[in-house]
């Protein structure tokens, strides 16, 4: 309840009742329920594509249920790191461990493109996410629940071709969630969306993460998104983790608030320092 009590102190920002309740709920949840997410341990990870060494030794400990954002310039290796975690690329050296298991099957991924099957209806697309449990009798019910979670259960019988970009990404999110994953990887999932849709999707992602308590790894080029959503921001430069920043700002975080903006500013300064730009942020 510490975080909730902070709000009652005189120098705290004025906050409305809904925020307060939200905050109290979150504090209660995090102290009561252990996360069902998987922890992630990476040691000495290296990856090269031909002559190009993209990752030069990554060491990382992510506790269960943490929301980690990975930012960096294009080509810094952040997507490669995500793809290695998801098992889409082969490791050149080093290890990735998920708690007890070395490679669980349930790392779900959400990409920048929705990657929906255009020839299957929305519900069927969500059922794809169940993996080998696709044939089980409750598959359809689970898919419907996942669609309801993202607010699209009225679209279950539609073809993907009639959905907007944001709606397609929400279906992709439902597909990633339907199997109750314990670790979810997001590879710039909101990059193709317009600014307003991006904000509402960020809220959706945060809500879903809080409700389902999986470990979340978000790769994004948008530092403000990273700071708004994550517990921890990793800045990758030249294939290594250059900075590891904990975001202690209590949730729900308000866009445009001073502490978010200053954190974002300092991270951007770090990112832009490697290019010769005057530090005028």
């Amino acid at each position: 309840m510490q975080e909730a009590l902070r709000f009652l102190s005189p120098d705290a920002e004025p906050v409305d009742r809904a925020d307060f309740i939200e905050q109290a709920r979150l504090a209660w949840r995090s102290s009561e329920a252990p996360s069902r997410g998987l922890p992630l341990t990476i040691r000495g990870l290296r990856k090269s594509f031909g002559d190009n060494e993209v990752l030069r030794g990554i060491d990382l400990n992510i506790p269960a249920g943490q929301f980690v954002a990975i930012v960096g310039r294009s080509g810094c290796g952040k997507s490669t790191l995500l793809r290695l975690i998801a098992g889409l690329e082969s490791i050149d050296a080093g290890t990735i461990g998920f708690g007890q298991e070395t490679r669980p099957e349930d790392v779900r991924v959400m990409f920048q493109e929705p990657r929906l099957l255009p020839w299957a209806r929305v519900l069927s697309n969500v059922e794809v996410g169940l993996g080998r449990e696709r044939a089980s009798p409750d598959a359809q019910a689970r898919a419907e629940r996942a669609l309801a979670e993202v607010g699209l259960d009225d679209k279950r019988g539609q073809w993907p071709a009639v959905l907007s970009g944001g709606q397609k990404q929400r279906v992709a999110l439902a597909r990633a969630l339907v199997s109750d994953p314990r670790i979810l990887a997001f590879d710039e999932p909101l990059g193709a969306l317009d600014a307003l849709t991006r904000i509402s999707m960020q809220r959706l992602l945060e809500r879903v993460w809080r409700d389902q308590a999986f470990t979340a790894i978000l790769v994004t080029h948008d530092v403000s998104e990273a700071v708004a959503l994550a517990d921890r921001v990793l800045v990758i430069e030249n294939g290594r983790i250059a900075h590891d920043i904990h975001v202690d700002i209590p949730r729900p975080r308000r866009r445009g608030s001073a502490d978010l903006a200053s954190l974002e500013g300092s991270i951007l300064r770090e990112l832009l320092q490697s290019v010769d730009e005057p530090p005028d942020l």
Partner: peptide, 23 residues
Amino acid sequence: QLIEMGRIYGMSDGELFRRVIFP
């Protein structure tokens, strides 16, 4: 990209053909 998605979501080769490649 669809084929990669299918692999990530655990489709066997046969399923990949039936649900992704052939359609």
